[in-house]
């Protein structure tokens, strides 16, 4: 890792328990500003759980217990002075399955604005257009703003979820296997979009697909059974991993 990189999210000695199950074991990892970091590992290794800690979506599960700190720009997001709703506006999330709301395209994109109480139509229209352009949807959807979002093809739905997120101007974008419901062509479109978004946003992506991690990420972390085994520049991790377990996984002998 080069010294010029600036840490955006700093996870420090973080533990998470689901009831009696120890799902994240003493994780420490720094996510670098305006880079793409991929979390890879076999199913159940805790990579999605770690992702969901970064915007505190795990708070929704009643049996979850956490220890340790996660700093966003130096401020502990598990601190008592944090408003979770504000946190989630800064750290947005794109889910595994596209989940646009059963509303029109426009109402989906402007959802975050309406949550924030913004309703001036001219401003809403401007943000809707800007967000759809940023997600490369404007040309396809500019004349379909009032149509139901659920009738769009899946990859447009997923990019609509990205647009909906960009509308609230987050700083960090979390992506939980964003392409697993998509075909290869749609996947490559999302990947190009992510590379484009990297100029402005810090992106953390969880993926099952090692080629995808190798293609798009700057840094990669390999997780196994709740441990972060290895974390490095993607190229280094994929070409000369230090840990034999990482070696086994990326060469396909495990997982």
């Amino acid at each position: 890792m080069t010294a010029s990189t600036q840490t955006k999210v700093d996870v420090q000695a973080f533990n998470l328990h689901y009831g009696a199950f120890h799902a994240l074991k003493n994780i420490s990892i720094k996510f670098v500003d305006r880079k793409i970091t991929a979390l890879i590992g076999p199913s159940g290794c805790g990579k999605s759980t770690l992702l969901r800690c970064l915007n505190r979506m795990n708070d929704l599960i009643p049996t979850v217990r956490t220890e340790g700190r996660i700093l966003l720009d130096g401020r502990n997001i598990y601190g008592s002075d944090i408003d979770v709703c504000d946190l989630r506006k800064k750290v947005g999330m794109v889910f595994q399955r596209p989940n646009p709301f059963p509303l029109s395209v426009r109402d989906n994109v402007s959802f975050g604005l309406r949550v924030a109480g913004q309703s001036d139509p001219a401003q809403v229209d401007a943000v809707v257009e800007r967000s759809l352009r940023a997600a490369w949807l404007w040309d396809a959807l500019s004349d379909k703003l009032d149509e139901p979002a659920l009738e769009l093809p899946l990859d447009q739905q997923q990019r609509l979820c990205v647009a909906r997120l960009l509308a609230i101007e987050p700083e960090v974008i979390l992506m939980d296997e964003p392409c697993s419901a998509l075909d290869p062509i749609a996947t490559s479109r999302i990947e190009e979009l992510m590379l484009d978004l990297r100029r402005q946003y810090t992106i953390v992506i969880v993926t099952h697909n090692m080629q995808q991690a190798a293609r798009i990420s700057d840094f990669s972390g390999y997780m196994l059974l709740g441990d972060l085994i290895e974390y490095d520049v993607t190229k280094t991790l994929f070409t000369s991993p230090r840990d034999p377990r990482t070696q086994d996984y990326i060469s396909g002998r495990y997982g």
Binding site: M57, C85, M93, F95, N99, P102, G112, A116, I168
Partner: peptide
């Protein structure tokens, strides 16, 4: 679907906003 609720909360909505802006509509 739980994904609507999650999606709304992940965009910074409060529970009540998630209910009246998305869930009741669905």
């Amino acid at each position: 679907p739980a994904s609507y609720r999650e999606g709304a909360l992940a965009l910074g909505a409060t529970r009540w906003q998630a209910v009246h802006m998305v869930i009741l509509k669905a």
